[in-house]
């Protein structure tokens, strides 16, 4: 799985992207976010404000109950502020 991080989520995790193998049993976005938050202090800090974490799977906005698969491109970011 390819993971991408943006804005202050990227800054707190410390890297813009990484390739990870999805552990068995993780099949939904909320499970993925919980697992990532357990990977270290940077991840925990980036994902602590769960209400401010938005997710895109394969470049489309999705909700927390959206399925995830190992070949997906998953992006985590704060609410967008363009325009």
């Amino acid at each position: 799985m390819k993971l991408l991080y943006f804005a202050w989520i990227r800054a707190r995790i410390g890297i813009p992207e990484e390739d990870l193998s999805l552990p068995a049993g993780i099949v939904r976005v909320d499970q993925l976010v919980d697992w990532l938050a357990s990977r270290g202090p940077g991840y925990a800090a980036a994902l602590a404000e769960r209400g401010s974490v938005r997710v895109a799977v394969n470049q489309e906005h999705v909700g927390l109950d959206h399925p995830v698969r190992d070949g997906d491109e998953v992006a985590l970011f704060p609410p967008v502020t363009g325009g």
Binding site: A11, A56, F77, P78, P79, V80, T81, G82, G83
Partner: peptide, 30 residues
């Protein structure tokens, strides 16, 4: 177009002022 763009296009603003850098928060009004 501009209203929808502001709440769905994946852009983020980092402001750099004399006090340092801060990420702009999304606005409820948007």
């Amino acid at each position: 177009l501009i209203d929808w763009l502001k709440t769905s296009a994946p852009f983020w603003k980092l402001e750099e002022g004399p006090e340092g850098s801060t990420w702009v928060d999304a606005k409820g009004t948007d």
